[in-house]
Design a protein around this nucleic acid. Structure first.
Lengths: 344, 344
DNA sequence: CTGAAAGCGCTAACAA
DNA sequence: TTGTTAGCGCTTTCAG
């Protein structure tokens, strides 16, 4: 053994360590490490060399406290298993990368209570901005957002009153337009299949818009079926079987998402049901999974990646300007009729 | 308008504000807000009331700097669009929730350079621990992990040398056992279909193990096909068509993930190919999507959620004890033969 | 049970 | 181009 004294508890390195190792003041070290102000090349090199040799990692906590600046963007979403949100996150990541901001994710599991807790936790890190899914929040959560004094972007949905900025689509309109397209194609006995989640406001709004669209033609929903949990593809199968057994005269099934829609499509193909002749099908989201199915399910793209991108742009734009925004971006989902709606 | 002076720039609230509003010292306010030490009920109530009324949100940056304690766990993964990682994240979230720790996610896009940058960024927030996918890191990244002085858990893979703790499965073994099962079922002309990503080390290890397993029986891979990007389900279809056109005599296809495997399965069913009689199929991961397919694809569960959970447990365990671990947890994936491998 | 003093590691502002 | 001086808002420690 070499002459190690009594186990020196290893401190984590500070600016001072780099300062001593390089013979330059802490302030100058700090400047070099942040590419700030003019520093002579020789000094810069010495500092960089020392920092690297020691393995110094700056302490952003101290930095943030001193400078009152944090390069974090809080991103709050209901779920990761939904497939929808990972895409939004990718859009956000992509866009923020360029601006030097860092997304920090929090998950609420569709619970308002949990959302409040996550939001509180994240705001206490004083992020540069907040991106949060949906327009429905508890009063306390809304108050926190309002008082945070930073740009807030509510995403996914524009049907409601945002706290600050909003980027999304109108799910009511999405439902409405789907109903019109279905009726335009001549279908009349229409069923709805969707999730039971009491807090999935967007699915609820799509259904509301859909029923409004049917009402325009004097039609009511003929039957419906709800689920929660489990493999969505399998649920789609099972629900389709159930609803067709109960209401064999249905001529269209509208699914609240593409996964259960895909399950329904596979079921119909299995059973040799004539799609779209005798039975039409449509989903929602535009997940690229659909491209690989034997037949292409009708759907409506929810513009997920684009939503993420635009939201991130709003934050990074304001983080430069220091302003709070109130931007309102409504994206327009386009009906992709695929092969499961009769063509006029 | 009321007598608003010249636009008071709204400061964010501090402990001092709550202290003044409640007539209690900052120190006592701090105690109440952290449920620390003995505080009389009446004082506690006054403080809580004032904090709530003002809408005070504590500043964790200052708190962390003063206490040298951060309740953040850095989680670094290659991708969010993979479906695999969201499940791991769910496992982590679930487990950390109980311990008061907060996961913070970073995404590397399978790039070692990006991983280094993300890691540096996250370590600069002095997290309580790090959970990072894979055992392959740049020298610099490995050095940072080693010097961080906090628990590090490398996940997904155990084939290699961890920096500290590791939780995962052996992908080599997974490939090996799949090969044995396939050969045991009597297949001999075997093709491999997978991703081309040069940095997906785990897919590579599975292939290596697979080839080793074939070699035991004196067999070589008859053909292979690689892809990158796009809808995995669709790619699975296309690749399957391509490889079967090129090598019509193949009697088994091993896919590097379930999504492309599912695409292949759908293709075979479309074409009326006798599965598993004339052609066997297998994937990898055990995604629950498979439950909804017309036939169940053979696969091997990668224990994703469990991996997340165990990794989180290691971090929260050590965050209490303040120790650094070196735990080694190897989970065992189980072959799920489904309907696409001939049964003896 | 409550308060006062000191300082966490860094950066803004100013001085040299 | 470089250094010095004060804090950032909180918690630790110790004293009442």
């Amino acid at each position: 053994m070499s002459s190690n004294g009594p186990a020196e508890p290893r401190r984590t390195l500070t600016l001072r360590d780099v300062s001593e190792a390089s013979g330059v003041s802490e302030m100058t070290v700090s400047r070099v490490l942040r590419n700030r102000g003019d520093v002579s090349d020789s000094t810069r090199e010495r500092v960089l060399e020392a920092a690297k040799r020691l393995g110094y990692v700056p302490n952003k906590i101290a930095g943030a406290l001193a400078s009152q600046r944090v390069n974090l963007v809080a991103v709050i979403i209901p779920s990761l298993s939904n497939l929808v949100f990972p895409e939004v996150l990718s859009g956000i990541s992509e866009e923020l990368e360029e601006s030097g901001l860092q997304p920090v994710f929090g998950v609420t599991n569709y619970s308002a209570e949990r959302e409040e807790a996550v939001l509180y936790e994240m705001l206490s890190w004083r992020p540069t901005g907040v991106i949060i899914a949906g327009l429905e929040h508890s009063d306390a959560a809304r108050a926190m957002l309002q008082n945070a004094g930073i740009p807030i972007v509510e995403i996914m949905d524009v049907d409601g009153t945002p706290v600050d900025s909003v980027v999304g689509i109108s799910h009511k309109r999405a439902g409405l337009e789907m109903a019109r397209a279905i009726i335009g194609a001549g279908y009349r006995r229409i069923g709805f299949l969707g999730t039971k989640m009491p807090h999935d406001h967007r699915a609820r709004k799509r259904l509301e818009g859909f029923e409004a669209g049917l009402a325009e033609a004097g039609i009511e929903l003929a039957d419906s079926e709800f689920y929660s949990g489990g493999s969505a593809l399998l649920k789609g199968r099972e629900m389709t079987e159930a609803i067709l057994k109960r209401s064999p005269d249905l001529d269209f099934l509208y699914y609240s998402n593409d996964m259960i829609g895909a399950g329904g499509l596979l079921y119909c193909l299995d059973k040799g049901i004539d799609v779209p002749g005798k039975l039409g099908l449509a989903g929602f989201n535009g997940v690229d999974l659909l491209d690989g199915l034997p037949r292409k399910l009708a759907t409506m793209d929810a513009c997920r990646r684009e939503i993420g991108r635009r939201a991130a742009q709003i934050i990074s734009g304001h983080s430069d300007a220091g302003l709070i925004g109130g931007e309102h971006v409504e994206l327009t989902p386009v009906l992709e009729p695929g092969d499961t709606i009769r063509q006029g």
